[in-house]
């Protein structure tokens, strides 16, 4: 999960940077004459290892994945995939047939994923923004507090999530101890958190705990770019802290928020590690995120064709959402630059 995190933030931003380069021909080289570095082949040589690695691990597998989604790749054909019979759109038909068992489960998993994502992204963004804005000015304890807030982001996913799994144990976990034994809010019951419907809330809690520090980190970086003069001028005009936050800080964060919310959305929607470590291979319905669902559908039943078709549908959905999101948010925001 960490892999997608920062790099996705980078992705979106650098794409913007690349676009900016395209917009102004010559970019930074426009002003003065620059001696051209010799060796036309050198940049390609330097890029070759990166290109090769990306081709092998990302580009080719995606193409192969699309090919697989039209094949009947069951256990019999996994070691000899060239012999796998074609299935046309059969895999897709199974995946979207909501009257059939597989399609109905996929739809349910999709809706759960959507609910978890919307809730977790909203909360992570809210907590991250609140903390970043409150910590914009220097105060005693700011440095250590910042370090504390970043701990969940720095922890390896599996150690953090295993700790949460321990806390959510029914009989010996901390959560039930606090709720049932110390606060007595459950009426003597010890609810299950990792099976049944409560798993939804357990999952949202863990995801928010893990992802709000990332929002905090990115927004803090963004706050450093706001000019101090704006605050000083508005203070002279009599604006208090709260007015400044509403009218200077939050509007200035909007471009960063555009990228941040998209990135949080994408990696929460694709999150595999959290539910996989929290629940094990088969997640309960309430915490059955789409990646775990596809994983389960592929590796437990060894039906890679259907799994690939589901993955391709997931990719199409994400591309559609990303395109629509960028279109809507960019139109609302006046272009400046």
């Amino acid at each position: 999960m960490t892999s997608a995190k920062v790099s996705a933030a980078g992705a979106a931003r650098a794409e913007g940077a690349a676009a900016a380069h395209g917009a102004g021909p010559g970019g930074s080289t426009g002003g003065r004459r620059r001696r051209r570095l010799p060796g036309k082949a050198l940049p390609y040589l330097l890029l070759a290892p990166a290109v090769a690695a990306e081709l092998i691990v990302h580009v080719v597998p995606i193409a192969v994945g699309i090919w697989m989604s039209f094949k009947e790749l069951t256990l019999f054909y996994i070691r000899e995939w060239s012999k796998a019979p074609g299935k046309g759109l059969g895999n897709y038909r199974v995946a979207v047939d909501v009257d059939g068992a597989i399609g109905a489960d996929l739809l349910r998993s999709f809706l759960v994923t959507l609910a978890v994502t919307v809730l977790a992204v909203g909360l992570s963004w809210l907590l991250g923004t609140t903390a970043a804005v409150l910590m914009q000015e220097r105060f005693r304890g700011r440095g250590p507090l910042r370090a504390i807030f970043l701990v969940p982001y720095a922890l390896p996913v599996y150690t953090a999530v295993m700790t949460w799994a321990f806390m959510f144990q029914r009989d010996n976990g901390m959560v039930n101890h606090v709720l049932a034994d110390q606060l007595h809010v459950t009426g003597g019951d010890r609810p299950f958190w990792l099976i049944g419907n409560n798993s939804f809330w357990a999952l949202v809690t863990v995801i928010v705990w893990r992802s709000w520090p990332f929002a905090f980190l990115v927004l803090m970086a963004g706050l450093q770019n706001i000019s101090r003069d704006l605050y000083e001028a508005s203070a002279l005009d009599g604006a208090g802290v709260w007015r400044q936050i509403r009218h200077i800080t939050l509007p200035a964060l909007r471009p960063i928020n555009q990228v941040l919310v998209l990135v949080l959305f994408l990696w929460t929607f694709n999150d595999f590690n959290t539910p996989f470590v929290l629940f094990g291979k088969a997640a309960p319905a309430g915490g059955d995120l789409i990646s775990v669902h596809i994983y389960h559908a592929s590796f437990v039943t060894w039906n890679f064709g259907t799994g690939s078709a589901m993955s391709v549908l997931l990719l199409l959905f994400l591309l559609l959402v990303t395109a629509a999101y960028l279109l809507v948010t960019s139109r609302r925001r006046p272009a400046h630059g």
Partner: peptide, 13 residues
């Protein structure tokens, strides 16, 4: 950069 947006499960299989 855009390959990073893709779900891991898509190229895992």
């Amino acid at each position: 950069l855009s390959t990073q947006m893709f779900p891991g499960i898509l190229f895992l299989l």
